[in-house]
Computed example of a mutant assay.
Amino acid sequence: MDDLLDRHESGTASPFGYPDYSAFADVSEIDSFVKQLQEAEAAGAIGIVRGRGRNQDKIERVRLNDVLRLYDLLGRRPVGERAAQAHRCLLEGVDVPNEFEIPIAAIRAAWDRGGAWQGFAAQDADRLRTALLLAKAILEGKHRGVDYRTFSRRIAGESKALEKVEGAVVRILASALELPPAARPKDALRTLGLEKFAPPMLLAGRVDFDAAELSLARPTYFGIPPAEAHRVRLTERPRYLLTIENLASFNRHLTEADPEARGLTVYVGGYPSFATQDALRCFARAIPTEVPFYHWSDIDPDGTWIFRTIERIIERPLRPHLMASDLAEQFGRVPKEAVRPQRRAENSAISELIAYLERENAKWLEQEELDPVAPVEGESTFAR
């Protein structure tokens, strides 16, 4: 009978139910079930349709007759009432930012249908409220300069609270911030500065680190805490600065395309963390403007998101390296499940590639599929 109400609340007109007698453990359970149905029929809540001939004593199906009587009989409240109460619980005392109007409306719409939003049903309003408060705090910048678990404890009163609702937090924030299209929630939060520990930044080039004369040892590459980027010293002007998304491509570039370390090559660790973004901003200010900056990522929506993120933070021209539609057409594949690219930026050097990726049969290409080559002056800055 609960199933009849569930289907009624989801929009089914005059729903029917068919008893599954094989699901009962024994005859006594069947008898109890039949008795409940007969009582509901006597109350006018449902109608029972029996079989014919030899099966005339057997209940074949049950139809919903009176919704309000069945609610009362089962001690259940209409979905609209439950959704309204859950909605009040979610928003009570919260000054909801205008940027969150779309996800809040989607939550209410899902609950009004008796469904769930991102796995949170009406009865989960308290947990979703925690996600809303965390998302609001992030939007207000209260996470800056605070590690992941300290932020969670300060806002939600529990150090692991954010881990439990990461997906919902990211979905709420996605209406206000441009986040990586296909990133896991933890990776998306990392780009905003929420991480347990900042991973090291890997560098290769003719550089020293404070008093350490690394240029004499010429290591293939070395790692530093991103916050220490200001301690990197150039021993000579690099021919270029190249940021690379993928670790395998980073290693291949160093050994195959630039074994003499004429450029400054930086591994950004996939989606660049907030600390890595700050380090790149530091390099952009310290390196002469004549040195061209490039970025090499996968040719897909996440790759263009990473490009645009770096482009915004360095505040100087950034050129795509091995990121062009002709390469995708030649070597790429049409994805099985396409992710819509981020909002187009007309003034971005990657805008034409973003437009290409919006096409119905656009191909994606992982950067590992390409052999590395060193950036050259005059390299196309736009997808062809």
Rank of each mutant, 00 (worst) to 15 (best):
L4Q: 06
L4P: 05
H8K: 15
S14G: 12
P19F: 02
P19D: 01
A23T: 13
F24G: 02
A25D: 11
E29P: 03
E29V: 10
E39A: 06
A40Y: 01
G44S: 00
R52A: 03
I59G: 04
R61K: 15
D72K: 13
L74R: 07
P78E: 02
E81Y: 04
R82P: 03
L90S: 00
L91E: 00
D95V: 05
P97I: 04
E101S: 15
I102Y: 04
R108D: 12
W117G: 03
A121Q: 14
R129G: 10
A135W: 07
A135M: 04
A137G: 02
L139D: 01
K142G: 07
R144A: 09
S159R: 13
A161M: 07
V165Q: 02
I172M: 12
L173I: 15
A182T: 15
A183L: 07
R184T: 08
D187P: 02
D187M: 14
L189R: 06
G193L: 07
F197Q: 07
G205N: 08
F209L: 15
D210H: 07
L214C: 03
L216Y: 10
T220S: 08
Y221T: 11
F222P: 05
A227I: 14
H230D: 15
H230P: 03
Y240F: 11
L247A: 13
A248N: 13
R252H: 11
G263F: 09
Y271L: 07
Y271A: 13
A275Y: 03
T276H: 15
Q277K: 04
A286P: 00
A286G: 07
V291F: 03
W305R: 05
I306D: 01
R308A: 14
E311A: 08
R312E: 01
R316M: 09
R319E: 03
A324Q: 11
A324R: 10
S325T: 06
P335Y: 13
R340T: 14
N347V: 02
S348F: 10
S351M: 06
L357E: 00
E368Q: 13
E369V: 10
D371A: 14
D371M: 11
D371E: 12
P372A: 11
V373A: 09
F382S: 12
F382L: 12
